[in-house]
């Protein structure tokens, strides 16, 4: 019985890690900054914490704070250097940032444990701690999904010139998005390494970028709900898809491809649009004279 439970505990921890990582990816994305550096932040947070605990004997929470803060600072500096690049180029710069870090990890000798990584990263952090931390982050982020802040994010993403004309300091928000994304990503890495007690270059490579991205694609990039839904979907689906067997990976790929092509905004957007359609239908039914005006719509 305890084995069964502890099996699910690992899955739960993975869900928490992936959710945080996806949230880290979402913050800049919601402001129109296509950054895949979150995996790099994850690596920085994870390795910093691992190195401090294993090599310098730091205790748990200071090591977590260090991982979070250092990732945040490096993220901010990264932002200063590349925020002026447009869409695709910025995305590729962040991909290469993350990949460079994985190569550095491989070549880091005894500091990073080389290709094998570091072991024995033990601490006092429990799954409950992790859960509470993630809940706190989600609560903080939910504030940015309501009212003024959410409108600002939308304006910055959809039309930066308009945002500027509305008085929004677009440059400052973009820089902040790097900082916050970095902190959350670093936190995800720190907590993750404490849960798993190991970290290796393999766990922070291109595969992780793709995984985090697929969570966003399926769940949606606009809301923390999407990050949670996407993470749960990917980690818990295999449990229910046993019958698919070894074609599971192919099915996953198909789902992601379909979502990417036909469902921009992921599952969350599908829901939001459904609710809006209902509102419009209801409104047209109750205000017949307005229908004529809206008929001229694009």
């Amino acid at each position: 019985m305890m084995d069964w439970l502890s099996g699910y505990e690992v899955l739960f921890q993975l869900t928490l890690s992936l959710t945080l990582l996806a949230l880290s990816l979402q913050i800049p994305l919601r402001m129109g900054v296509v950054s895949f550096a979150s995996v790099g932040y994850f690596a920085i947070g994870g390795y910093t914490t691992a190195i401090l605990v294993v090599h310098s004997g730091w205790s748990t929470w200071p090591a977590v704070v260090a991982g979070t803060v250092i990732a945040g600072v490096i993220a901010y500096l990264l932002g200063l250097g590349i925020a002026h690049l447009n869409g695709l180029y910025l995305a590729m710069a962040t991909v290469s940032f993350s990949m460079i870090l994985s190569v550095v990890a491989v070549n880091g000798g005894s500091l990073t444990g080389g290709p094998i990584g570091l072991f024995g990263v033990m601490g006092d952090a429990t799954t409950w701690h992790f859960f509470i931390i993630v809940i706190l982050v989600i609560i903080a982020i939910s504030f940015t999904e309501r009212g003024r802040l959410s409108r600002r994010f939308d304006a910055i993403r959809e039309d930066p010139q308009l945002a500027s004309a509305m008085g929004i300091n677009v440059v400052r928000y973009r820089r902040l998005s790097f900082l916050i994304s970095g902190a959350i990503g670093g936190l995800a890495g720190s907590m993750s390494v404490l849960m798993k007690t190991t970290i290796s270059p393999e766990s922070i490579g291109f595969g992780l970028i793709v995984l985090a991205l697929t969570v966003i694609i399926v769940g949606g990039q606009g809301s923390w709900v999407g990050a949670v839904v996407g993470s749960v979907f990917f980690l818990w689906m295999p449990q229910t898809l046993d019958f698919v067997g070894t074609w599971e990976a192919v099915l996953y790929g198909l789902i992601v491809a379909v979502a990417a092509i036909y469902l921009p905004g992921g599952v969350v957007a599908v829901y939001k649009n459904w609710r809006y359609r209902r509102y419009v239908a209801h409104r047209n039914a109750t205000l017949p004279e307005a229908v004529g005006a809206s008929q001229g719509g694009e």
Partner: peptide
């Protein structure tokens, strides 16, 4: 569309690899 195309490409790429 740029980003959506990139994302779609990444998603689609997974299928041949998985096969």
């Amino acid at each position: 569309a740029e980003l959506q195309i990139v994302v779609a490409g990444i998603g689609i790429a997974a299928v041949p690899v998985a096969i």
